[in-house]
């Protein structure tokens, strides 16, 4: 325990704020877990045509990102899709 711990540890107030921000983006987008699951499966089906992906490790979420325009933060769908192997069948 020391001064360095103070810098490392995020205050619980900030943790709460960050959790809330993420939570509200998906709340406001009105995206139920069922719909997220459907989106996830559709993405897997499309990409599986071209490459072998790790469907277990696939992670998608709705979050906020800064837009290039001037209107500040906009919701964005972020998908993290680990590729196992690219198919070469052309």
């Amino acid at each position: 325990m020391g001064v360095f711990d103070l810098f490392k540890k995020k205050s619980s107030g900030n943790v709460a704020k960050d959790r809330l921000k993420l939570l509200l983006v998906s709340d406001r987008a009105n995206c139920s877990p069922e719909i997220m699951e459907m989106i996830k499966n559709d993405i897997i089906n499309v990409i599986a045509k071209y490459m072998e992906i790790d469907s277990e490790g696939l992670d998608i979420q709705i979050t906020q990102t800064e837009s290039d325009g001037s209107n500040g933060n906009v919701p964005a769908l972020i998908a993290n899709i680990p590729i196992k192997e690219v198919k070469h069948n052309s």
Binding site: S11, S12, G13, N14, A16, K17, L20, K21, L24
Partner: peptide, 17 residues
């Protein structure tokens, strides 16, 4: 007192959200 310590969201935080 908790806001000062960083253990509670401030009024500004709530307003921002």
């Amino acid at each position: 007192d908790m806001v000062k310590k960083g253990d509670m969201m401030s009024i500004e935080d709530v307003l921002e959200i």
